[in-house]
Design a protein around this nucleic acid. Structure first.
Length: 519
DNA sequence: GTTGCCGGGAC
DNA sequence: GTCCCGGCAAC
């Protein structure tokens, strides 16, 4: 559903005007870092108030109420609170442009790096044109504006889910995976689709893309339920990976805004995702050396990293998403399901072994790749993490590990090589570090190794896809379908020849698998 | 075409 | 259970 590309623009990372901290009345710009809800004053009809944490230009972090920001934003002719400014950004070409620019950290921006650098230059006009489209759309359907918003939000959620599912599916052993597979397939399918389809890319769907791309995805994800029941909160955790360089906790912020504009917000406040197939609680663990802090929200962890470890206090522009590299997603399985399978479950990699496994070269899929994309969206502005941040210098291992985590998930299946060590070594040595190949051998896959030999000549990517394909199908079927690989060793027939058939092992005589010269 | 061996039949 | 072979797939 909903590929990451369809991600709706988040408030996070948006540049807004806020009352001057100095109180001189002059509005200043800042970038929304987080949004939190305050239910306390929800006296009337569950009305909620959102507090926006805005990183001011001077690097300070301020919190503003919606009203305050609204006031500030009025200077740019963008009316209303943040959510409005986002939604209505198209109403003002200039402000829209600003938003987009400021949205360097926004979800879609996170993917920008994927696009040619030059794209950034041409982005403005593009965005505007899209905005115009959106504007028209909104004019026509203004009365159902809210639902739209919700849809896009859900879509965003689904994107996360998709990402999560993809990751999950990649990391899951075939045995456990079969059930989820369908989901992930569906997800990934749409994702691919989106990935390749221009119109749905984040860059072009500034704010409306989510709207019209929703229908298809939703069908996939939830054929039986036309309505968009997904709880945004429930999927927050999944956002992390897919948000890439996005500002801290893009997930959090949107909810409030939605709630505000949608009275029925209660529906979305369910702590537990309705659709979540697995009841996992996702936490985010700081991987900084000796830290290990665990927070429940992306925003939290990112902020933690940024402020505590990176020592950054500047506005979100400084946050090039580098934080992403220093925390990892930890899924806690709240269901005590299938113990036997637990070790194979997708969760195992991160949960069972907090310290991620040895590194692997490539992230499994484009999505995951994004989430931990080494070069955050704003790189063009800021020098790559490599040189500038203390982080990159002092905590490379963490980065390493994180990458490992996901890559590992993807590559683990490659270990299939089970029996034929030759093939295994062939397929690994060339592409990876020695440490890498070793750990992958472990998975007790009963795969006969049929797929291994072919991989010798394949590129790593191909291997991966192959692996994925294999995993997607029921393990049993796979094993059953694939004939036992022809033994490479000598057989009775070869050794003794037809003339000495009586010297063959019985199996050979019976045309069964040779028992004497087993491979 | 050769070879390894699975699946299945005959006994 | 043993013995055999048709037939498939890898080579």
């Amino acid at each position: 559903m909903h590929t990451r590309r369809l991600v709706k623009r988040s408030i996070l990372g948006s540049r807004v005007y806020a009352p001057s901290p100095t109180g001189d009345g002059a509005p200043v710009t800042g970038v929304v870092q987080a949004v939190k809800q305050e239910n306390r004053d929800a006296s009337a009809a569950g009305a909620r108030r959102s507090v926006y944490t805005v990183l001011m230009q001077d690097g300070s972090l301020k919190e503003f109420t919606e009203e305050e920001i609204a006031a500030g934003s009025s200077h740019t002719a963008a009316k209303g609170p943040l959510k409005s400014s986002l939604k209505q950004s198209s109403s003002n070409g200039v402000s829209d442009g600003q938003k987009v620019e400021g949205g360097c950290l926004s979800p879609e921006a996170a993917e920008e790096p994927r696009l040619a650098e030059g794209k950034r230059v041409s982005r403005d006009p593009e965005t505007r044109s899209v905005s115009l489209l959106e504007q028209k759309r909104k004019v026509v359907s203004s009365s159902i504006d809210v639902p739209h918003a919700r849809r896009s939000e859900e879509e965003v959620d689904m994107d996360k889910v998709t990402a999560a599912m993809v990751l999950t599916s990649l990391s899951t052993s075939p045995l456990v995976r079969s059930p989820p597979v369908k989901v992930s397939e569906g997800l990934s399918g749409s994702w691919k689709e989106n990935g390749s389809v221009g119109p749905f890319t984040p860059s072009s769907n500034s704010s409306s893309g989510g709207y019209w791309s929703w229908s298809a995805p939703s069908d996939q994800s939830n054929p039986s339920t036309p309505s968009p029941p997904l709880s945004a909160d429930s999927f927050k955790p999944f956002r992390v990976p897919s948000q890439g360089g996005a500002g801290p906790g893009p997930a959090g912020p949107e909810d409030p805004s939605l709630d505000e504009q949608d009275g029925s917000s209660l529906l979305f406040d369910e702590p537990i995702p309705r659709k979540r197939k697995n009841s996992m609680k996702v936490m985010f663990k700081c991987l900084w050396k000796n830290c290990g802090k665990v927070l429940s929200t992306t925003a939290g962890i990112q902020r933690h990293i940024r402020t505590i470890h990176l020592g950054r206090s500047c506005d979100s522009d400084c946050s090039d998403g580098e934080e992403d590299f220093y925390y990892t997603e930890i899924k806690l399985n709240t269901d005590s399901v299938a113990d036997g399978l637990s070790s194979l479950s997708p969760v195992s990699p991160s949960v069972l072994s907090p310290p991620p496994p040895p590194p692997s070269p490539l992230p499994p899929v484009s999505q995951p790749a994004d989430s931990h994309r080494p070069l955050p969206p704003c790189d063009s502005k800021e020098p790559p993490a490599g040189g500038t941040t203390p982080l990159s210098r002092s905590a490379p291992s963490a980065l390493y590990l994180i990458h490992t985590d996901h890559a590992y998930q993807a590559t683990a299946p490659v270990s299939i090589p089970s029996s034929s060590s030759n093939s295994a070594s062939n397929s690994f040595t060339p592409t990876n570090s020695s440490s890498f190949s070793i750990s992958w051998q472990s998975p007790p896959v009963t795969f006969t190794g049929n797929s291994v030999s072919p991989t010798k000549s394949q590129g790593f990517g191909e291997q991966r896809s192959h692996t994925i394909a294999v995993l997607s199908s029921p393990p049993r079927a796979t094993a059953a379908l694939s004939r036992k690989v022809r033994g490479e060793g000598k057989k009775c027939r070869k050794v003794y020849g037809m003339e000495n058939r009586d010297m063959w092992c019985t199996a050979c005589r019976w045309k069964k698998a040779c028992q004497r010269f087993t491979d």
